[in-house]
Simulated scan of single mutants.
Amino acid sequence: MIPARPLPFLTPRNVPMQNIGARIRTWREERNLSREDLAEQAGLSVSFLAALEDDGLLPALGPLHKVARALGVRLGTFMDDQVTREPVVTRASEHTGDLTIGRARDADPALRYTALARGKSDRAMEPFFMEVEPGAAEQTSSHQGEEFLYVLEGAARLEYGRQSHILRAGDSIYYNSVVPHAVRAEGGPARLLAVVYFPT
Rank of each mutant, 00 (worst) to 15 (best):
M1C: 00
M1T: 03
P3V: 05
A4S: 05
R5I: 05
R5H: 00
L7W: 03
L10I: 07
T11H: 07
M17S: 15
Q18N: 07
R25A: 13
R25E: 12
R28A: 08
R31G: 01
L38D: 02
A39P: 13
A39Q: 12
E40L: 10
E40A: 13
L44K: 11
S47L: 06
L49Y: 12
A51C: 00
A51L: 05
A51R: 15
D54H: 15
D54S: 15
D55A: 10
D55G: 10
G56K: 08
L58M: 13
A60R: 05
P63N: 02
H65K: 13
H65G: 06
R69A: 09
L71S: 03
L71K: 02
V73H: 13
R74P: 01
G76P: 02
M79R: 00
D81W: 00
T84G: 05
T84K: 00
R85E: 11
T90Y: 01
R91D: 00
H95P: 01
T96M: 00
G97T: 08
I101R: 11
G102P: 11
G102W: 11
D106A: 01
P109E: 01
T114P: 12
A115E: 09
G119W: 09
G119D: 01
D122M: 05
E126P: 00
P127H: 10
E131H: 12
V132E: 09
Q139T: 07
E147F: 04
E147W: 05
E147Y: 03
L149D: 13
Y150Q: 08
L152V: 14
E153Q: 15
A156T: 09
A156W: 09
L158A: 11
E159Y: 08
Y160A: 10
S164V: 14
S164E: 14
H165W: 12
I166K: 04
Y174S: 12
Y175M: 14
S177I: 10
A182W: 02
A182C: 10
R184L: 09
G187T: 06
A190L: 14
L192M: 14
L192C: 08
A194F: 03
V195F: 11
P199M: 15
T200P: 04
